[in-house]
């Protein structure tokens, strides 16, 4: 496709978390088959050519699975389309002449590193607090010795597809991380392998989530609406249930 689109970009520029940021405007020629990030590549080549500093943004796999890309596009994390990451968004979702506003994830638990890149280390620390099954290498029994009904396995898989991108936090007015935490807690609480640590896990993860400064959940549902993997809101209900039940048992 060679048809050209003229796009006006308003991009958030911020040298580091020590500085304040502001919007810069740019004009870019794109084609409908380009991905959004390829359009950003074109912008950066243009900026470099003009002797400026390219826009820093995070990205790696560019196929919607690593969770690295993270842009708020026209006010929505990962842009206007349902169920896709920024890297899987294509310019055909925009029209010639559009003005597109691009910002980083906004949340105090995700400080800006530069421009559109933020620090999501808090997510790793939540997993380190309890998002695992404690089984050392070599301790496993034969894989088919524990049968797991297909329905259960499918549900656990569905929760496990979270890519840790942080769009849920960015979408939430309270910057809550409940969808992310709920997804992991749901996966492991469904599976027989996760039972031994079921209660200690949920408490440790929630404590860490609070310590990181994520906000409380007020059940608005913006997280699930913007989640590129369509993690359902029900994982938050599961998280609440698991947490309450662990607390009742004195954890």
């Amino acid at each position: 496709m060679s048809e050209n689109m003229n796009i006006n970009l308003k991009v958030w520029r911020q040298p580091s978390d020590q500085n304040t940021g502001s919007f810069e405007t740019y004009k870019v020629q794109a084609s409908p088959d380009m991905s959004f990030l390829e359009m950003m590549d074109v912008l950066n080549e243009q900026i470099i050519e003009e002797g400026g500093e390219p826009v820093a943004f995070d990205h790696d796999c560019r196929e919607g699975i690593c969770g690295m890309c993270s842009m708020v596009i026209n006010g929505r994390p990962h842009g206007p389309k349902q169920g896709v990451t920024t890297c899987q968004l294509h310019m055909r979702s925009f029209s010639d002449g559009d003005t597109v506003v691009v910002e980083p994830w906004r949340a105090s638990a995700f400080p800006v590193i530069k421009d559109l890149s933020v620090d999501r280390g808090a997510f790793d620390r939540i997993i380190a607090a309890g998002g695992y099954v404690s089984v050392n290498t070599g301790n496993a029994v034969d894989a088919n010795s524990v049968l797991i009904p297909k329905d259960t396995a499918d549900k656990a898989f569905e929760a496990a597809t979270c890519i840790g991108c942080g769009a849920c936090v960015s979408a939430c007015k309270n910057a809550s991380a409940m969808l992310f935490v709920g997804a992991k807690v749901t996966q492991l609480s469904l599976l027989p392998q996760g039972q031994a640590e079921r209660e200690s896990r949920v408490v440790a993860m929630v404590n860490q989530m609070d310590a990181e400064g994520f906000g409380a959940c007020t059940n608005t549902g913006a997280c699930a609406a913007e989640c590129p993997k369509e993690i359902p809101l029900s994982v938050i209900a599961t998280l609440n249930r698991e947490y309450t039940s662990a607390k009742l048992k004195g954890r």
Partner: peptide
């Protein structure tokens, strides 16, 4: 063969049949 055992023990949700086997 040990790899599959290890991964299942960690809670890796592999695809399963209706009978619950992998």
């Amino acid at each position: 063969t040990n790899i599959i055992d290890q991964c299942v023990a960690q809670g890796v949700p592999f695809a399963r049949e209706y009978g619950g086997t992998l």
